[in-house]
Design a protein around this nucleic acid. Structure first.
Lengths: 122, 122
DNA sequence: TATTGTTATACTCTATAACTATA
DNA sequence: TATAGTTATAGAGTATAACAATA
């Protein structure tokens, strides 16, 4: 399932890590690089190249934070927002393909059962 | 869930890959290195170090195959069989912990729903 | 003194090409 | 000629230590 997910995004050139970063920025505009790293469990040293890649591809804008001149505030560019939109659309297609044999009720039931497992994943 | 699984096995020193290899050998005694690699999606060059590690730790015995002198026939040693047994016991504990809130009926239902997804993971 | 981003670095995992010995 | 195991190697992904600038 994860490899299908990766293939789904792979065609866009936006890998899973990059999509994760874009998503966090999308929901938290102006978030700092370190906060994104913490949110996703990425080591800060490894964030540098990832953010560089996103900036280099014109998907993310990086500005010195006004209130803390050590930090970079990250925002999506127009292209970045469009990339997130396309990735989400592809993910929806992927999910629909994966779940095509389940009724709406069965999908809800499956999610409820998985939630009750997740609560014990400690 | 996968990280919990890895932690469960991690304490034994038998990583997930190694457990996979031991399992295949356990069910197919005398199987060749290449067959195990194909079964698990491991590149044959990468199998070499893995099998070396298992042989070095006394878990696997490697003999030239009688009918094809190019191939190695792999078998579990007594220690290897014991390691598989302990790993399986730990996996059962892990699964019981993960599934502790589900009744037997709910577990069967969950597995049936997941099976119907797996059929579409193409 | 602590934190942000960074560099340098190392270790694991994985992937490919090319060799050898057998078939 | 094809296949089994091997070597060398390269590329991701991920981890830690140490530094400069700022808090």
């Amino acid at each position: 399932m994860r490899s299908d997910y990766a293939r789904t995004l792979g065609e866009t050139g936006v890998r899973q890590v990059l999509f994760g970063i874009l998503s966090v920025i999308s929901v938290n505009p102006g978030v700092s690089q370190g906060s994104v790293a913490r949110a996703l469990g990425i080591q800060r040293p490894n964030m540098v190249a990832l953010v560089n890649e996103l900036v280099g591809r014109g998907l993310v804008a990086r500005h010195v934070d006004a209130t803390d001149r050590r930090a970079f505030a990250l925002n999506l560019t127009e292209m970045g927002a469009a990339a997130v939109g396309e990735a989400l659309a592809r993910i929806r297609v992927h999910e629909e393909r994966i779940l095509r044999d389940l009724t709406a009720d069965e999908r809800r039931l499956l999610i409820r059962l998985l939630d009750r497992i997740g609560a014990n994943d400690d």
